[in-house]
Amino acid sequence: MVKFGTIRETAREPARAPDPQTTPLPVKVQVERFSFYYGDVRVLHEITLGFPRNQVTALIGPSGCGKTTLLRAINRMNDLIPDTRAEGRILLDGENIYDPQVDVVRLRRRVGMVFQRSNPFPKTIFENVAYGLRVNGLVRNRRELQERVEESLRQAALWDEVKDRLHESALALSGGQQQRLCIARALAVRPEVLLLDEPASALDPIATEKIEELIAELKRHYTIIIVTHNMQQAARVSDYTAFLWMGHLVEFNQTEKLFTVPREKLTEDYLTGRFG
């Protein structure tokens, strides 16, 4: 391992859980002493934190700090990367998702995900949203399918823009529309948790604003965890923020507190732009 002098000492302290009085809310996803390895390289070090239900939690930190790895651990998307392994537990409503008996397909139905680069299928707009419903057998007939597709597109604030061209290719949509389509697609299967991996990083400011408004709206029904590079965005959209650094959880708190009165020197340095 690389040595980082004094800064490392700070980070190596056991990751602290937020004050009990700062998280009175019920926890939806509890991460417990979770570590993750690419081959023999440990990229997450015994992370412990609880994501509160029906709240938006932002994961921030410099590139390579492990925030995306942590996010992808929550729906076990990292399983797809060869030669990786996880230690510790992640509990979804108290159930360990890394238990060998867990059905990953069921898990992913309950924990939806939107990726950094919008990745619609090269199919029609309608078929993109219908995909999850079809593969999971969630609808009984054509009418129900159409209703769920419309409902999802409305939730993603995309319906009005695409209702007249549902059967055109999704690839003809603009970048921002494609990303909202990906959100609609994830919402269609009615997940409980929504993981967003820098959903606006490739979008212009107007499209970004739309996505952020959407996140605020979706919070009522979903527990949202968002990875972002953009600290202003984290401050705008999230209720809680976790700051990761070199695979360690440095600080986790209500966004307002973390941004105004950070407890850790490292957090303060990062927020004030001294590194990162």
Binding site: N75, M77, L80, V105, R106, R108, R109, G112, M113, F115, R117, N119, P120, F121, P122, Y131, G132, V135, N136, C182, R185, A186, V189
Partner: peptide, 20 residues
Amino acid sequence: ELREASLALGATRWQTIWHV
């Protein structure tokens, strides 16, 4: 990305291969 999109929606590996 396409494989991941499909799997993240709760599709099985075989469904992902067949449909995507």
